[in-house]
Nucleic acid binder design. Structure first.
Length: 356
DNA sequence: TCTGGGGTCCTTAGGCAG
DNA sequence: TCTGCTGCCTAAGGACCC
C-alpha cells in the first residue's frame, strides 16, 4: 500500500433521468421523475429541475406528484440504464489504465495514484464521457475513498472537486454527520442523542463515550469517519454474494395460495438470474414484510449448491409454511446465498482428506 | 398519501469441534 | 471427565448504500 494514495470517485449526475432525457430530448429543461407507477412506487431518480420542487429519490411517488404535479413521470427501464452504464464504464477503462471499482450502475472509484497527471487525465475523461455518452459526471478526488466520495457529492452536478483529508475536515465541519458515507438516519439520530450533530462535533467527540454507546469497533470507526480517515482499498473484482427477488404487493395479501404462487415465481426468477451468471447457492431464504412493516427472514442451508427451480421452490415453500403468517403480507422475497461457481468441484471428499 | 428492489456488511446468539 | 477458550458455521435482524 503506497503511503499516499490518489483516489477518484466518479458519479453520474441524475443518471437514470439523464438516460431518459437522451432518448427524449424534447423533455430537456422540464422536471423529470423516474418512478414506478403502482400505488406504492417510490422515486428512483429526479432531474435537477424536479429536485427544486423538493422531489428526491426514495420518496413515495405519490408525494412527488403532489410536490410537482407538472413533472413528467417515466417508468424505470433498467435494461436501458444497464446498457448505458456498460458503455460509459467501458470508455473509462479504455482511457485510464488504473484499478476501477464500479459500485453501482452510475458510480465508480478509480485508483489513480500511479497516473502521471491524474487531474488532467480525469478532466479529459469527463469531457470525453460527456461527448461520447451525453452523460454528465461529477468527480471527487482525494487521498481516500471517503474523501473522494464526499467531494464528488459536494457541488453536484458537473463538479470537479479535489480535497486533502485536512481540507475535507474543515470543509464539511459544520455539516450533519449524515453526510458521511456509512452514517445513515439511525446512527445520526443516536449521535444526536449524545449531543453530536455535526462532523466537527464528531471529530472532537470523546472516543470512550462513543465506544460505550456504539461498541468498540463502531465507536472508533465513527470518529475516524468524521476525521476522514479511511484506508479501504479500491477493489477491482468483487464476487456476488447473494441474489434475490422480492415484490411489494399493491395491496397487502393474506391468502396462502396467493403467497405461495408468488413465492414460486420469485424463486424461479432467482434461479434464472443465477443461471445467467453460472452460479448456484446453498442457502435458501425467504423474507416477509407484514402490513406493520415488521420483517421476518427464514433461511435454510443445504449440503449442495443448487439453482434447480423445483428444489428451490420446494425449500422456499417449506420455509413459508413453517412460518405462521399472522398478519397481512406487504412484501415477499426469495434469496439464494452461499454462492458457488458452476465449475467448482463438490467439496465433499476434500473435507475428509484435508488435515484439520 | 406514507415508505421499491437490488445488494453488502455487521452484530448477536447458539451449536459444535478441537 | 469436566471446564474453559477459541474458531467456525448458521440463522436472524438491522443499518446502510444506490
Amino acid at each position: 500500500v503506497p503511503a499516499r494514495r490518489v483516489i477518484a470517485h466518479l458519479d453520474c449526475d441524475s443518471f437514470y433521468a439523464s438516460v431518459e432525457l437522451l432518448r427524449r430530448p424534447q423533455l430537456r429543461g422540464l422536471p423529470v421523475v423516474v418512478a414506478g407507477s403502482g400505488p406504492r412506487a417510490v422515486v428512483t431518480t429526479a432531474s435537477y429541475e424536479a429536485r427544486r420542487f423538493g422531489v428526491h429519490s426514495a420518496m413515495p411517488a405519490s408525494q412527488a406528484r403532489r410536490l410537482c404535479p407538472q413533472a413528467v413521470f417515466i417508468a424505470p427501464d433498467f435494461d436501458a440504464y444497464r446498457a448505458k452504464s456498460r458503455e460509459l464504464w467501458a470508455i473509462v477503462a479504455e482511457r485510464l489504465p488504473c484499478p476501477m471499482q464500479q459500485v453501482s450502475l452510475d458510480e465508480a472509484y478509480l485508483e489513480v495514484t500511479a497516473l502521471e497527471r491524474p487531474l488532467a487525465a480525469l478532466r479529459e475523461l469527463v469531457g470525453e464521457l460527456r461527448e461520447r455518452t451525453g452523460i454528465s459526471v461529477s468527480v471527487g478526488v482525494g487521498p481516500s475513498r471517503l474523501v473522494a466520495k464526499t467531494a464528488s457529492d459536494w457541488r453536484k452536478p458537473a463538479c470537479f472537486a479535489v480535497l486533502s483529508r485536512e481540507q475535507a475536515c474543515r470543509q464539511f465541519a459544520s455539516c450533519s454527520t449524515a453526510i458521511l458515507q456509512g452514517i445513515g438516519p439511525k446512527t445520526a439520530r443516536r449521535l444526536a442523542e449524545l449531543g453530536i450533530e455535526t462532523v466537527a462535533e464528531l471529530q472532537r467527540a470523546d472516543e470512550a463515550r462513543l465506544v460505550e454507546r456504539f461498541g468498540e469497533r463502531a465507536g472508533r470507526w465513527l470518529k475516524a469517519r468524521a476525521r476522514f480517515e479511511d484506508d479501504s482499498p479500491v477493489q477491482t473484482d468483487r464476487a456476488l454474494k447473494s441474489r434475490s427477488s422480492e415484490v411489494t404487493f399493491d395491496v397487502d395479501v393474506s391468502e396462502p395460495a396467493r403467497l405461495e404462487q408468488t413465492l414460486r415465481r420469485l424463486a424461479a426468477e432467482v434461479c434464472e438470474g443465477l443461471g445467467r451468471r453460472g452460479l448456484r447457492g446453498r442457502t435458501i431464504a425467504i423474507k416477509l414484510r407484514y402490513d406493520d412493516w415488521t420483517n421476518v427472514t427464514r433461511a435454510r442451508t443445504i449440503a449442495h449448491a443448487t439453482r434447480e427451480p423445483e428444489l428451490v421452490i420446494e425449500l422456499a415453500l417449506a420455509l413459508l409454511r413453517a412460518q405462521a403468517v399472522a398478519r397481512p403480507v406487504r412484501l415477499l422475497g426469495v434469496r439464494l446465498a452461499s454462492l458457488e461457481a458452476d465449475d467448482r468441484p463438490a467439496p465433499a471428499q476434500l473435507s475428509l482428506l484435508a488435515p484439520q
